[in-house]
Design a protein around this nucleic acid. Structure first.
Lengths: 227, 227
DNA sequence: GCACTCACATACCGTGAGTACGTACCGAGA
DNA sequence: TCTCGGTACGTACTCACGGTATGTGAGTGC
C-alpha cells in the first residue's frame, strides 16, 4: 500500500482554454469519479467508504467535498457517466438502419451488450433506484436509454398506418423497454450467456414478428381487456 | 410521541400449541417486522435507523439482535413477507380461468394492482436489489412473482402446438415479466394511473393478440436475428 | 509584488450499526 | 416448592463512516 507509484501528477485534461489551475482541478475531479466508479461497481454503494475513494484518488475528503456536495452527488456523477456511455453505444448501433424492424433488432443486440457490463448492471440497474431514489432514477433513464427505445418504437409504429398519440407511444416504449431490460438479465444471469442471447433474440424476434403482422395489416387496437 | 398508548401487551399470535413464552417472543418478532415494514416503506432502508424501529416496536436493540442477525436480515424478513403477499394475491386472481388468454389478462390486471402498492414498489422494486444484492433478489422473485408469470406463459404456450424446451419457456417468461413490471411503472409513475392502466392493458392486449395469431396458426419460431 | 481566492488538507463531530455482557423470567425436573 | 438452565430480552459501549469547520499554500489578476 501507500502512495507508491506516483504515476502521473500531470492531468490528462487538455489544458487548452482553461487556466493551469482549472486543468488540475478538473483532473482530480475526474480521478475521483474514476475511482468511485470502480469501487461502486466492485463493492456497491453502501460498502464503499469515502475514505477508500479519496485514498484511491490520492486526495483527501476536503477535495471530494470541494467538488461534490456528498457521497450521493458523487454517485450521481458516476451514474450519469455510465448511463450516458451506454446510451451512446446503443445510439451508435441504431444509425444507418433504414428498415425500422432491422433497427429494432440492432437496438436489441446493442442493449444486450450493454446490459452485460458489470458497471451498468451494478450502478444503473442494481443501485441506481435505491441510491438516487426512483424519481431521479427515472428522470435519468428517460433522457438516455429509454430515449433510444422510444426512438425505436416510434420508428416501428410509423411503419404502420396507425395514429397513436404520444402517451400511447410512451406506453409501448415502456413495455418494450422493460422487456429488453429483463431480457438482458436473462442473458447476463445465465451460465451460458451466448445460448441465452440466442434464445432472447429468438423470442423477441418472434414477438416482433407478431407485432409486425398486426401493424402491416393495419389491425386496429383492441379494447383488449374490456369485459 | 412517547410510548403513550400501551395498546396491547397481549400478543396476537395464537398461543395454541406453543408455550406462553414462545407466544410472547413471536409477538415481538412480529412487531419488529411490522414496524420495520412501515418505516422502510415510508423512508427507505438507509434512512431508517434501528433505533427508530425498536422504539416503534417498544423494545430495545437487544431484542432485535436476538431475533435477527442484523439490519439486513430484518429487511429480508420484511421483503419476504411483502413479496409473498403480493404473489399470493396475483395467484389468487389466476384461479378459475380456463382460457389461457383470459388468464394472462387477469394476471396482468392483478399485477398492475400489486405494483401500485407503496410497500411493493419501495421494498421489492426499489430497495430490494440494492439491499439484498442481485443474486438473493432474483432467487426470491424466482419462486414468487416470477413463478406466476411462468405459469401464465406456460398456459399460453400450451395453447399452441409448439414444442418449447424449458429454457425457451423461461426466456419468454422473463421477457413478459419485464414487460409487466415496466408496465407497472408506467402506471404507478403516471399522474393519472387509471388512464395509464387502460393504455397499458390496451398495449399488452395488442401484443398478446399478435402473439395469439402466431401461436394459433402454428407459425414457427424464426431465426429472428440471423444475418 | 500584493491581495485575493481557489483547491485542496487537517482535525473534528454526530450518528448509527453492531457487540459484550448483565438480568429477569418462564418452564422443566427433583 | 425449590432449584436450575436457558430463553428473551435490556444496558452500555465501541467503532466506522458521512459530514463539517477551519486552516493553508499555491496560482492568478491587478
Amino acid at each position: 500500500m501507500s502512495k507508491s507509484s506516483v504515476s502521473k501528477l500531470v492531468p490528462k485534461v487538455p489544458s487548452v482554454g482553461g487556466s493551469r489551475r482549472a486543468a488540475y482541478s478538473a483532473s482530480t475531479k475526474r480521478a475521483l469519479i474514476d475511482v468511485a466508479q470502480t469501487l461502486f461497481t466492485d463493492q456497491g454503494y453502501a460498502a464503499t467508504s469515502l475514505d477508500q475513494i479519496v485514498a484511491g484518488a490520492r486526495v483527501t475528503k476536503g477535495a471530494l467535498y470541494h467538488h461534490f456536495s456528498g457521497k450521493q452527488a458523487l454517485f450521481e456523477a458516476v451514474f450519469e457517466r455510465v448511463e450516458s456511455d451506454s446510451a451512446q453505444s446503443v445510439k451508435k448501433a441504431l444509425r444507418g438502419h433504414r428498415d425500422p424492424w432491422d433497427k429494432a433488432r440492432a437496438g436489441l443486440r446493442a442493449h444486450l451488450e450493454v446490459v452485460q457490463e458489470a458497471r451498468y448492471r451494478r450502478i444503473v440497474i442494481q443501485e441506481g433506484p435505491a441510491v438516487l431514489g426512483y424519481e431521479r432514477y427515472r428522470e435519468q433513464e428517460e433522457r438516455s436509454t429509454f430515449a433510444n427505445v422510444l426512438d425505436i418504437v416510434q420508428s416501428v409504429l410509423a411503419a404502420g398506418k396507425w395514429e397513436l398519440d404520444e402517451d400511447m407511444q410512451q406506453t409501448f416504449a415502456r413495455i418494450f423497454f422493460g422487456a429488453m431490460s429483463s431480457a438482458g438479465e436473462a442473458v447476463s444471469g445465465s451460465e451460458d450467456p451466448i445460448a441465452a442471447a440466442v434464445r432472447v433474440e429468438t423470442a423477441i424476434g418472434f414477438i416482433l414478428a407478431g407485432f409486425q403482422i398486426l401493424v402491416e395489416n393495419d389491425v386496429q387496437l383492441p379494447n383488449a381487456l374490456a369485459d
